[in-house]
Amino acid sequence: MPNKLVKFCLASLTLCLLVLSVQVFAHGVDDNTRAFLQQNTGVQFVPFLYIGAKHMITGYDHLLFLVGVVFFLYKSRDVLLYVTMFTLGHSATLLLGVLSDIQVNAYLIDAIIGLSVVYKGFDNLGGFKRCFNWQPNTQWAVLIFGLFHGFGLASKLQEFQLPQDGLITNLIAFNLGVELGQFAALVFILIAINAWRLLPSFQRFSTLTNTLLMSAGFMLVGYQLSGYVIN
């Protein structure tokens, strides 16, 4: 029975990683959300709260990064610390990007977000120590990449040129929704990883899992850079 459970978990995780990496071609804002954002006027707290949560839960690039961040974190204190660093990073640049109208190329930002997934998989594999005999500060790295993730979120909203009326309140609602979505996704991720850690296969297949994580990140980077060149 444990062997079957292990195979099921591995197959599910592998499938999810591959599907999520392929879904990059469809990533963006759905038609209903697009129509709402284009027609939005005034304070719309609940809708923006929902859109923020939905975007985070369906944001495979953000979720893949979170999977890498918590993959080898065993203490709740460490999970809280790293997630807080990530949250501070993307919250700051989300608000700053939209309110200050800082224009960044969405393709390049999303490519860097894909690179953050590559980084975390490489770091989990001990790549920096093996290849460079050096280990970057993981907390600062999560914070810095969090800044780019925030600009990625901001670039999605800037496409719609949101009206100034109620903008701050709507942005706060969107950011709060992002945090709620992140929390919900993180709970699921931690439950799955902690359950897997109880099995002897966790260490045996951790290399494969993080290699797949890097592969998904490289696919994200390649697609976004291709979009940048073409467009």
Results as ranks from 00 to 15, higher is better:
3 N>W: 13
5 L>F: 13
5 L>G: 15
7 K>V: 00
11 A>Y: 11
16 C>D: 07
18 L>R: 04
19 V>A: 15
20 L>H: 02
21 S>M: 12
22 V>K: 11
23 Q>R: 02
25 F>G: 11
27 H>F: 07
31 D>R: 09
32 N>C: 10
41 T>H: 12
44 Q>A: 00
55 H>I: 00
57 I>T: 07
58 T>W: 02
62 H>W: 05
68 G>D: 07
70 V>Q: 09
72 F>T: 06
73 L>R: 12
84 T>Q: 08
87 T>G: 02
88 L>H: 03
89 G>A: 05
89 G>S: 05
90 H>D: 01
92 A>R: 05
92 A>N: 09
112 I>C: 11
115 L>I: 07
120 K>T: 08
121 G>S: 11
124 N>P: 09
125 L>A: 09
126 G>C: 10
137 N>T: 00
138 T>D: 14
138 T>E: 15
141 A>R: 04
143 L>Y: 12
144 I>H: 03
145 F>K: 01
145 F>H: 02
147 L>P: 02
150 G>A: 10
153 L>E: 03
154 A>Q: 03
156 K>Q: 14
157 L>C: 03
158 Q>D: 08
159 E>W: 05
162 L>N: 03
164 Q>C: 06
169 T>R: 11
175 N>D: 12
176 L>P: 02
179 E>Q: 07
179 E>K: 01
183 F>E: 13
188 F>H: 06
191 I>Y: 12
204 R>P: 06
209 T>H: 08
212 L>R: 04
220 L>C: 06
220 L>S: 05
231 N>L: 13
